[in-house]
Design a protein around this nucleic acid. Structure first.
Length: 298
DNA sequence: TCGCTACTTGAAGCTGGGAG
DNA sequence: CTCCCAGCTTCAAGTAGCGA
């Protein structure tokens, strides 16, 4: 497949109906980039982030930053993707302490989603907003497929929450949620699935607060993010770096003074989320959700 | 179809601290 | 003090999806 074919495939959601389809796309993409890139550009502030530059057929466009510590190459993905499916199907019986297994969960999820995202970066400049929207939707869908694969039913959808004023239901608030896990028509978990938290972390805290206040329940709210970095445009040309888009001050403020979330998960976790007080108690890598945390909610 | 909610990313703006 | 930079935060843009 050439780049144009890959981009067209990524643009069409009917090509991503199940996990197998996501893996097949990723496989094709990784094979393509293994010998069709103009260059791999190394980020100058955090060297393990790389940008792929396409050749002429991609107008020499440059992709989003890719964490080379997490991204598989074509050869290792062929093996890892089989393991990935195996681990998902047997998640309850795997060895929880096996770091290699945890890495497969994180890295395969990251690799597959970034293959979609960076393929979409090959779209002409005018269509970048379409690409963003699409990439977000595909990520949502992908995570839901993963959760179903480990044996938990889930869906996306809108929930109507009545607002009562002076004892009278006055109007509804309609909330669209990326992830709803129910058991016996009882909502067990509400989740946000986003490729980055940028500008929207506040809303997730507020949503939990208001939802639980209006419904007089304590429904757990979780968030799942792919990463939180974006390309930085430096003044000088030919100099590339990355920026973190996570707002630690807001996260800590809401956690301490409004209400903590019941789980925040990243595939590509930022270093300060492992070390900084408060952050490190609430933010984990994605494998933790699948292996342990999700089972506590249902 | 319309109105509304929601999606991601890039550019611009702000601030504190270090160098000169 | 002024300049510059990195990091953080806000503003702006264009479009998808859903329910009525």
């Amino acid at each position: 497949m050439n780049l144009k074919q890959l981009v067209n495939k990524a643009k069409d959601k009917s090509n991503f109906v199940d996990l197998k389809a996501y893996i097949a796309f990723c496989d094709e993409y990784l094979n393509y980039i293994s010998d069709n890139l103009q260059a791999t550009i190394v980020s100058q502030n955090e060297n393990h982030y790389h940008f792929y530059q396409y050749k002429k057929e991609g107008n020499f466009q440059i992709t989003r930053p890719i964490n080379s510590n997490l991204m598989y190459d074509a050869k290792s993905f062929a093996k890892a993707s089989k393991e990935f499916l195996k681990v998902l199907r047997n998640i309850k019986t795997i060895n929880k302490k096996d770091e290699a297994v945890r890495n497969i969960l994180n890295n395969a999820t990251y690799t597959i989603q970034q293959s979609v995202g960076s393929a979409l970066d090959g779209l002409p400049a005018g269509q970048s907003n379409t690409a963003r929207k699409l990439n977000g939707d595909l990520f949502e869908h992908f995570i839901r497929l993963i959760i179903r694969e480990i044996g938990i039913d889930c869906k996306a959808g809108t929930i109507q929450v009545p607002v009562i004023v002076d004892g009278q239901p006055t109007f509804n608030m309609s909330y669209q949620h990326d992830l709803i896990i129910e058991k016996e028509s009882d909502i067990k978990v509400i989740g946000s699935i986003k490729t980055s938290s940028k500008d929207r972390i506040d809303k997730i805290f507020i949503d939990k607060f208001l939802y639980n206040k209006l419904t007089e329940k304590a429904t757990p709210h979780i968030a799942i993010f792919l990463n939180d970095v974006q390309r930085k445009n430096s003044k000088k040309e030919n100099e590339y770096g990355i920026n973190a888009t996570f707002l630690p001050g807001h996260f800590k403020g809401y956690t301490v003074k409004l209400n903590p979330l019941d789980g925040v998960y990243y595939c590509d976790i930022r270093p300060n989320m492992r070390t900084e007080a408060i952050l490190k108690d609430h933010i984990k890598t994605f494998d933790n959700l699948l292996i342990e945390d999700i089972w506590k909610f249902i």
